[in-house]
């Protein structure tokens, strides 16, 4: 076992891990931050997306020890300080961007990464960026709409009928 230290959602954390421990297991099992999900476990589905030093990564396909000293952000840290939903989360609620909710943490974290590098994406850019996030309920329409709305753009034109 090796002692691992990092910052998660602004808080210093540490724990003992094995070489083979995945980042997602450290977050879920050691820190009990179970909002980050494991869907496919093969880096296809994106339910496990978190940010490491500001970049979206699939936490099921990164060893925990690779994040030694890193700043990690998970879905648990996305709400505002008073507990209210952030703009992306609120838009997912307002536009019904989820059904079962399993993929939602990864969708929100990918959306946050997208809007940081591209604050006003086109619909095509949103769809392209979500290539590695799979939803088996909604067909993506309302997810894309929610992200467009969260970026402050008018989504009337892409409303689903």
């Amino acid at each position: 076992m090796t002692q691992l230290t990092m910052t998660v959602n602004g808080k210093a954390v540490s724990g003992d891990v094995e070489g083979r421990t995945l980042l997602v297991n450290f977050l879920r099992d050691t820190l009990r931050l179970t909002g980050t999900h494991v869907g496919c476990d093969t880096s296809q589905c994106g339910a496990c997306v978190v940010h490491v030093n500001g970049q979206a990564v699939k936490a099921c396909t990164m060893l925990a020890l690779e994040a030694e000293g890193a700043e990690v952000a998970t879905i648990e840290g996305q709400a505002d300080a008073d507990g209210s939903l952030n703009a992306i989360q609120q838009a997912f609620q307002d536009h019904h961007g989820l059904q079962c909710g399993f993929c939602t943490p990864g969708m929100v974290m990918s959306a946050a990464a997208l809007l940081k590098e591209n604050p006003k994406p086109t619909e095509a850019e949103v769809r392209d960026y979500l290539e590695g996030n799979i939803c088996r309920c909604t067909g993506y329409h309302n997810i894309v709409k929610a992200i467009m709305a969260a970026s402050g753009q008018d989504v009337g034109a892409i409303a689903a009928e």
Binding site: V57, K58, E131
Partner: peptide
């Protein structure tokens, strides 16, 4: 290549 999260690693 891959998707954005894969390209970051």
């Amino acid at each position: 290549i891959g998707d954005p999260a894969v390209r970051n690693r």
